[in-house]
């Protein structure tokens, strides 16, 4: 088995993920590109498990499992943030998000939602 093939695959996938995060405007598509990067790291870890002879066997695969769990937690919180953003501003474009919080505008929206429940 030649380890250079999966290593280059992982490097290209990581580059694609970086490109997607910087290029996409839609927040859900940004999260998909983040998933591409996490999977590239997983492929590196699993491949390194075959090339590196560590003291503990199968450490790379254990780390890949841990990264999968981290990705699941990340996607849950990330999608909660995206959906809350959509509820407040009716948009999921990441460059429409104001970096400075307007002090009053968010408040009536929250109160409306509260009264509507």
């Amino acid at each position: 088995m030649r380890p250079v093939v999966p290593y280059v695959t992982a490097a290209l996938l990581f580059g694609l993920g970086v490109y997607g995060v910087l290029r996409r405007r839609n927040a859900v598509l940004v999260l998909m590109a983040v998933e591409l990067m996490l999977n590239a790291v997983n492929l590196i870890l699993v491949t390194a498990d075959t090339t590196a002879r560590a003291v503990l066997p199968h450490s790379g695969q254990v780390f890949a499992l841990f990264v999968i769990v981290l990705a699941a937690a990340e996607i849950g919180v990330g999608l909660a943030i995206v959906l809350q953003l959509y509820r407040l501003r009716s948009t999921v474009a990441v460059d429409d998000v104001a970096l400075t919080e307007p002090p009053v505008s968010a408040q009536p929206v929250g109160r409306d939602v509260e009264a509507g429940r």
Binding site: G15, V18, Y19, G20, L22, R23, N26
Partner: peptide, 20 residues
């Protein structure tokens, strides 16, 4: 869906090809 692409292509392509 997209922003103007050349900085993203530069950084992403640089990262991918450099790591390769």
């Amino acid at each position: 869906l997209d922003r103007p692409g050349w900085p993203a292509a530069l950084i992403g392509g640089g990262a991918g090809l450099g790591l390769s």
